[in-house]
Write a protein that binds this DNA or RNA. Structure first.
Lengths: 218, 218
DNA sequence: CCCTTTCTGTATCGATGACTACATAAAAGA
DNA sequence: TCTTTTATGTAGTCATCGATACAGAAAGGG
């Protein structure tokens, strides 16, 4: 069964996890090979043999992040019964993760490569694409909410989805700046007051007309 | 009048502005001395003689940013007549700046140093402190709104201030990801729906009790 | 004029960046 | 056992990082 040759002397999965933590905390450019190999407990040749290079390792680390700490967003948007519950769970579950002292704060996808050196543009583009996925997932869930009658057809799904993505991204920055879970929770409480279904007598902006039909009626 | 010695052969202010643009686009670590000197049109010794070093140059660039493109936040919070108008102007003025094609997108204070390599921790801390200033300014303006009777005393000023700071930070990420001004405006429209003073019949979260007294009545 | 002072361009410095050549070690297949 | 294959550790590669030594140029003071 063993695929020939000398067997690998380290746990690839564990090493990848350690690399993920380093990238998460220091960002792509801020994480040096010495940092990575030190945390992974291996030497550079082992890293290159097992992962291909720094950028390939980073992409795998991002993927691993998406399967673990970053999985709350798609999970919430997929499994929660209503759009409202989905968005709320997305925000609260992520906030809880952002401040978990067991690992770096905030979201790796938001914080690990915000500004691109020209040589690493592909890395930035990769994370940007993952952020676009979040926007699209939120919008798709809101669209489903409209189709199922939870949200009025007049709701501006594009804007509302971008709005909650914005809040999510901003929470990463707040967590990185040291805001604790009660602080993040209070921010989320405020952000959820924008949910359509709030009667507004004084209409300040003419943006989104809001009104909900009960979800049970359809 | 001339202070002795050979006069400087370049415009210090202009060079600083160019350095600001480079830091703004690439971040602190992503901006190399070659990038900086190239954009500033000078050689390394001139940079060191005039500014002291990379970090000192960065701090001056941040200060310059605060006096120019970053001045909308304190301006809005200081000059607008109501807390509501102040927060709205803060968001809209910044959004317009974030997508101005004349310069890099988003906010330099948010994007230039989100993740710190251990050697540059002081740089990250510096920007973090500037972001805290924003949070504090927003909160102070909300507090004033309460004092002046614009906002009910039951409004959670801490949470609401942190919330609008979160939206502001998130807008930088959105702008950096390519969202245009109409897109940012739609996000802001949605974010402003949380402003206290919205009658809510179905109370989803029990977080902040909201009710406003008309500003004119006091 | 010479001296002092400050700035400028060239040509580096040592340190560190990502990455790899090479000899050796440890396994499977013959 | 011998060969093949793959992984490992040492010790490097070259490029670039931020930062400077140094000599010459351009000003004022005497």
């Amino acid at each position: 069964m063993s695929p020939r040759g000398r067997p690998r002397a380290f746990d690839r999965e564990h090493a990848l996890t350690q690399a993920m933590f380093v990238f998460w905390e220091r960002g792509y450019e801020g994480a040096s090979l010495a940092d990575l190999t030190g945390a992974m407990g291996i030497n550079p040749p082992s890293l290159y043999a097992a992962f291909g290079g720094k950028e390939a390792l980073f992409r795998e680390a991002v993927e691993r992040y998406g399967e673990t700490y970053g999985s709350y967003t798609p999970r919430a948007l997929r499994e929660e019964p209503t759009a409202r519950a989905a968005v709320e769970a997305m925000l609260r579950d992520n906030a809880r993760t952002y401040v978990d002292p067991e690992h770096p704060t905030g979201c790796m996808v938001v914080l690990a490569a915000t500004n691109c050196s020209p040589s690493n543009r592909s890395v930035c583009a990769h994370l940007k694409a993952r952020r676009e996925e979040v926007r699209d997932l939120v919008r798709a869930r809101l669209r489903r909410g409209v189709e199922e009658g939870e949200l009025a057809e007049t709701v501006d799904v594009e804007a509302l989805g971008a709005y909650y993505a914005t809040v999510l991204f901003g929470l990463s920055m707040q967590a990185r700046d040291g805001v604790d879970l009660p602080g993040l929770t209070a921010i989320i409480d405020a952000a959820l007051l924008c949910w359509p279904g709030t009667d507004r007598e004084d209409a300040a902006g003419a943006a989104s007309e809001v009104d909900t039909a009960p979800a049970a009626s359809s």
